[in-house]
Design a protein around this nucleic acid. Sequence first.
DNA 1: GTGGCTCAGTGGCTGAGCCACTCAACCAAG
DNA 2: CTTGGTTGAGTGGCTCAGCCACTGAGCCAC
Lengths: 228, 228
Amino acid sequence: MEALPRETIVDVLEERLREDILAGRHPAGSYLPPERRLADGYGVTRTTLKHAFGRLVQAGLLETRHGVGTKVLDYARQGGADLLPMLVRHDPKWLHEIFEVRRSIGALIAERAAARATRSQHAELGRLLEAVREAGDADAVQLADIEVHRALARATGNRVYALLTNTLFKAYLPVRAALRGPFTDAETAHRRLVPLVDAVVSGDGRRAHAAADTYLRDTERIMLEGLA
Amino acid sequence: MEALPRETIVDVLEERLREDILAGRHPAGSYLPPERRLADGYGVTRTTLKHAFGRLVQAGLLETRHGVGTKVLDYARQGGADLLPMLVRHDPKWLHEIFEVRRSIGALIAERAAARATRSQHAELGRLLEAVREAGDADAVQLADIEVHRALARATGNRVYALLTNTLFKAYLPVRAALRGPFTDAETAHRRLVPLVDAVVSGDGRRAHAAADTYLRDTERIMLEGLA
DNA sequence: GTGGCTCAGTGGCTGAGCCACTCAACCAAG
DNA sequence: CTTGGTTGAGTGGCTCAGCCACTGAGCCAC
């Protein structure tokens, strides 16, 4: 088992604030009510509210200025990719756009990985691929699959790809359970990955690019079917 | 003028903690000292420390568990792209890797934008391109240039590209001043952008892809020269 | 062994309070 | 009039002391 999530007040408050902002109840460019009043409204302490603010500030949703107030930013303009988990939870339509980007970048990563992966990275890919086949349930298969893609990103030799991959995964992690379609059968999931890993290990960039595209299109289609 | 940054205690503390973590003084997997002791050590209140913690938790550098402690995570494994600004500040070597990714994704964006941009987006690109020429100093040129790229990302019709673009810009924003090389002359900067915008407006995906690649290689080279 | 209890240690959260900053209104000097 | 300084209300930044809630290890009764 893995120990997981506690829902703290700050979590709930952050969620609530985010919803209020994304839903337009606090339009971009406007100022939030003063902290004392807002905290009062939500029934929490100012300190707690500020903790929630801190997260939203970092995410690019808010901007506080000492002595002035807290301004709602336009996330499309100021926000970074780390907003995606929030945005997906707020409106699943984002998933389509995330998948499209994932497909393009995934192909890019496969191509780079084919060109640059080291021997030991080839071996690691093999091990992780095998782990997909041996995973117990859909959940485990999905996680094993993610590990393969992480390893591919590492194999590019560019750590930024690894971080981007993390970001995109985090984006649909909140709705992960609804996207298990491609992973219900370990054997099938494994088979679907083989051409991609093969192409990368063979060092053929073009083939790796194509294989990644195929793989991502297939899994994407199945995932989106599962949603409908 | 633009009103900007205040360096608050939390900012400094966050920076300090981050350095201590990235430098390995708190290795991944280990636990930080208890908040009370750590706050004492840094000479701040526990509340303030927790604000700094909050940011690092969100960035994927720390994980707190009620009743247990605060664990240092492996950012390469858990961290998202929003860590990049921190990482660049800690070690400028990251810039090379960021630039490589920016080049690949930039080309991707240009290609998509060529295929999908609307008439009004074409017009907007024209306006923003003109703004580059008319910008006053290197700083303004750089900002105008960024706006062109933001508009390109929007023109893909996929909002995730816009967020990714923001993320990558934020990554080198902390060292922006050192990367002004390509923007010292507005006329030159403008001329360099023209083929890219032209290709996108013409709707020729292949040409847009190539033009973006050329543009990004050129500016990248000049920026990195400026660093050395 | 097994299960329940206790307790020390940890992070979560509070509420009251002071400090620092910003802005607009006012006012006096020119 | 214009200019420049002062003031005060309102805001976020930060502290402090303290209680609550959770975890895990050790103990104990069964």
